[in-house]
């Protein structure tokens, strides 16, 4: 048994265990961390397949950026303790169905490999290892043949950024609307003072009604900031 096979068995076992851990852990944070481990194992697979660039991208983009984002979202939503939905009877059928499909998939792939439908991978020689999948090669293709899609993706990311701003931020009040709002607040304050003076002059009345009115429009004003 060569070193590579040995390494593959170990990393593969960790990857499978991490995937299982992700599925079965009750805490959202733990699930996300298990997924990081799983993605890191996949990155090692890429290294073993002589694709160092893919491996690094896998680490930085998936295990790094995307998973950090995941963790942030889980934290912000305060959903560390996830209800796995197993109590929801309508979705209860999904677990056995997913399990059956996964088994079926493994059987099909195994049958295809054993009957020779999928050819066994050829060992990669040193020349291929240096001409395929390195950052230089990926970059050369990306900036020549795939230049147009690359530029389009840049615009796409811009559109997505604009979208995040549009959908996440409230409209900043313009000067005119601010002025109008300030005017309205001033009117309300005047009304309140007149009501209060009237209430004070009237014997036995307290100013509670007026205070309530005063409280209502107040939070509306700074909400746009």
């Amino acid at each position: 048994m060569g070193l590579e096979t040995f390494l593959f068995i170990i990393v593969g076992a960790v990857a499978v265990a991490a995937a299982a851990g992700m599925l079965f852990s009750k805490s959202g944070i733990h699930s996300a961390l298990f997924l990081v481990l799983n993605l890191a194992c996949v990155a090692v697979f890429y290294l073993m397949l002589s694709a160092p660039f893919m491996a690094m991208v896998q680490i930085t983009v998936y295990a790094g950026a995307i998973m950090v984002l995941f963790l942030f979202v889980i934290m912000l939503l305060g959903s560390e303790r996830i209800d796995l939905g197993l109590t929801d009877r309508r979705l209860g059928f999904q677990t056995p169905a997913a399990f059956a499909l996964a088994v079926l998939f493994i059987v099909v792939v195994a049958a295809a490999v054993l009957t020779g439908q999928i050819p066994a991978p050829q060992p990669v020689n040193d020349v291929q290892a240096t001409t395929h999948g390195g950052p230089g090669e990926v970059g050369a293709v990306l900036y020549t043949r795939y230049l147009l899609p690359f530029e389009m993706v840049a615009v796409l990311l811009l559109a997505a950024t604009i979208g995040a701003v549009v959908l996440a931020r409230d409209v900043i009040p313009t000067k005119r609307s601010q002025r109008a709002q300030m005017g309205r607040i001033r009117e309300l304050r005047q009304m309140i003072t007149t009501i209060e003076t009237e209430a004070a002059s009237a014997p036995g009345a307290d100013g509670e009604g007026a205070e309530e009115e005063a409280a209502a429009p107040a939070p509306a004003a700074p909400a746009g900031e």
């Binding site: 795939y146 899609p149 389009m152 993706v153 796409l156 559109a159 604009i162 979208g163 549009v166 959908l167």
Partner: peptide, 25 residues
């Protein structure tokens, strides 16, 4: 002229539309 362009163009068309639909948030 290439399926890669087609796919990115489809997203370029769609994502602004998703955002614009939600403009009256």
């Amino acid at each position: 002229g290439d399926l890669a362009v087609l796919f990115v163009a489809l997203e370029l068309l769609s994502i602004p539309l998703y955002i614009m639909s939600g403009l009256r948030r």
